[in-house]
Amino acid sequence: MPVRRGHVAPQNTFLDTIIRKFEGQSRKFIIANARVENCAVIYCNDGFCELCGYSRAEVMQRPCTCDFLHGPRTQRRAAAQIAQALLGAEERKVEIAFYRKDGSCFLCLVDVVPVKNEDGAVIMFILNFEVVMEKDMVGSPAHDTNHRGPPTSWLAPGRAKTFRLKLPALLALTARESSVRSGGAGGAGAPGAVVVDVDLTPAAPSSESLALDEVTAMDNHVAGLGPAEERRALVGPGSPPRSAPGQLPSPRAHSLNPDASGSSCSLARTRSRESCASVRRASSADDIEAMRAGVLPPPPRHASTGAMHPLRSGLLNSTSDSDLVRYRTISKIPQITLNFVDLKGDPFLASPTSDREIIAPKIKERTHNVTEKVTQVLSLGADVLPEYKLQAPRIHRWTILHYSPFKAVWDWLILLLVIYTAVFTPYSAAFLLKETEEGPPATECGYACQPLAVVDLIVDIMFIVDILINFRTTYVNANEEVVSHPGRIAVHYFKGWFLIDMVAAIPFDLLI
């Protein structure tokens, strides 16, 4: 008679799926529990143990900040960024110097990925580790590398530091407007667009060049630039800015003055950032001319202004700041037409079709709590990747769950009947059967004279019903998954307890 339990259901295979997918890609990662103190490590794979030199037993239950890997060259700011990422709910990448158990130093890129439950609360953290440099290539500990984003994938490793954006290309926007319009339909740009040429040739750093990471940081200074100062900065030398009595002219307006920039070969870094931020506020060169004239017309309804409409929906549905990093990277690809469009465009503009998908598509409701890094690593669709929660398995109709209350009560009843059979069957065979043979035949009273025979008949009927119930009862397979398919249940029961239950259900007393 089957006594099969499996009270692990309803099970959740999400954690096993993450481990299996990460292991298949030869990654070095740990999984931490966000619900406990210090976000203790609950799993670390073999790749991480080989990377740091510690065994799994030495890593388990330690804080996922990996303070046991810190050393003299470990930056405090990087460690603080990892700790801050564990307090938030967004994906974050941090470069930090770690030390192995043998004392060797290596520069590592740590990717902190939160995993949320159905309520939107962070319950786990996945920390992925990628070695960037070994100890002989690690720089000085005073050099802070965590304020910069990861290198873009479309640049060669040897040319990542030679990417320079020439400031004269930004200063000569109005001069290039006529050349853009003359391109017409034969050019790649839309009317009114501004073409910015980027020099990728390796050259020595000069005062006129600005690194790509500095251009990325310009967006942080746009908020500090007032509207009046932006307007004066875009007017140009024809209309000098008016300053109040006793007030000095704005240095932001002076930063885009061609006369002032041409007199000296070098520009201050602050002026460069502010000038680029001011130019980015204009949607095209037409807006710059309109600002000089004193009238700013409404933005025209053409394809170039609607190019950012799908980007707005993608940004609203993005799951991490990696989408913004990807957008900034692609927006700086050289030799393309940049349409400086305000994100607050007309909502009635139709979304044009684009061959290049900048932001990841909208994630469906079932995966809105899973970050983009987890979705990318697992390579699963929205119909396959579940949320991290207890999910009731989908069972067929008329199927009994093996952990249901009805099955528990039924098993206790069958257990009592088995005990009765084990006690009274030998007793009936030894004593009652002998008395029946010696006594007179009682054929007239039937079952009324033999109450134990009636009980034995009921017990046999219950055993037959138990066999039928076992054909529709779920079970737990070797992978700790609840199986509810009727065919698989029948095959599993035939290979197991079916023969024993059938022999126990045969009414031998009635056959004798």
Rank of each mutant, 00 (worst) to 15 (best):
A228I: 07
A360H: 15
L107G: 06
R20T: 13
T174Q: 14
S304P: 15
A34I: 03
L385K: 09
N220E: 12
C49W: 01
E372T: 10
G183W: 06
W154Q: 07
S331N: 09
A40R: 11
E23T: 07
P245D: 14
T145L: 09
P141R: 11
N369C: 12
V295P: 09
V132A: 15
F22M: 10
H254C: 07
D119E: 10
A156V: 14
Q11W: 07
D46G: 05
A188K: 05
M133V: 13
A193I: 01
L171E: 12
G238F: 04
V131T: 15
V180F: 15
T74D: 01
R356C: 12
I336W: 15
S266L: 11
L316D: 15
T329K: 06
L324I: 14
Y99P: 01
Y327F: 12
I126W: 05
R176Q: 08
S179R: 11
A282H: 14
G6W: 08
A244V: 12
T17E: 08
R281E: 14
G381M: 05
L210E: 06
L86C: 14
P249C: 10
P168F: 03
R312T: 14
F68Y: 04
D259M: 04
H254V: 05
V341K: 15
S351W: 07
G314D: 09
L296C: 07
A360D: 15
R5H: 09
N12S: 07
G345T: 14
G345I: 04
F163M: 15
Q81M: 12
N339Y: 01
V8I: 07
C52K: 01
P386Q: 01
P297W: 07
A277L: 07
A282I: 11
I96W: 01
N369K: 15
L267Q: 06
G224H: 09
R292V: 07
E118Y: 06
E37C: 05
M137V: 07
A293D: 04
L86D: 01
P227W: 05
S313R: 11
S283F: 07
R73W: 06
S284V: 12
S264G: 14
E357H: 15
E289H: 04
I31M: 08
I18M: 12
C105W: 15
I330F: 12
P205K: 04
V59C: 04
G6A: 11
S243Y: 15
V113A: 06
V384I: 07
S379Q: 06
A228P: 14
K28T: 12
R273H: 09
E130T: 15
P168W: 01
T371W: 06
L296D: 07
K373V: 12
V180R: 15
G71F: 01
H147A: 11
L165I: 06
C66G: 01
P237T: 07
M308K: 14
N117M: 15
L127I: 07
S261A: 08
A204G: 06
R148T: 12
D111W: 05
I30F: 01
V295E: 15
V370K: 10
A188M: 07
I126A: 11
S250A: 15
S153D: 11
H147T: 09
T371R: 07
V110A: 01
P241F: 15
F125L: 05
P227Y: 08
G183F: 06
E214H: 11
P299L: 03
P249V: 15
N117G: 15
V341D: 12
L15E: 01
T201P: 15
F98C: 05
E130G: 11
S261C: 07
R92I: 12
L155V: 15
Q25Y: 08
S264Y: 08
V215Q: 08
G24R: 07
G236H: 06
P258G: 14
A190E: 01
E58S: 04
L225G: 12
Y43K: 01
P249Y: 06
F340D: 08
P202W: 01
V180K: 10
P227K: 11
L380F: 07
D199Y: 01
E230K: 05
A160Q: 14
G139N: 07
G120L: 14
M291V: 14
A142T: 13
P245Y: 14
S351P: 08
A172D: 14
T353M: 07
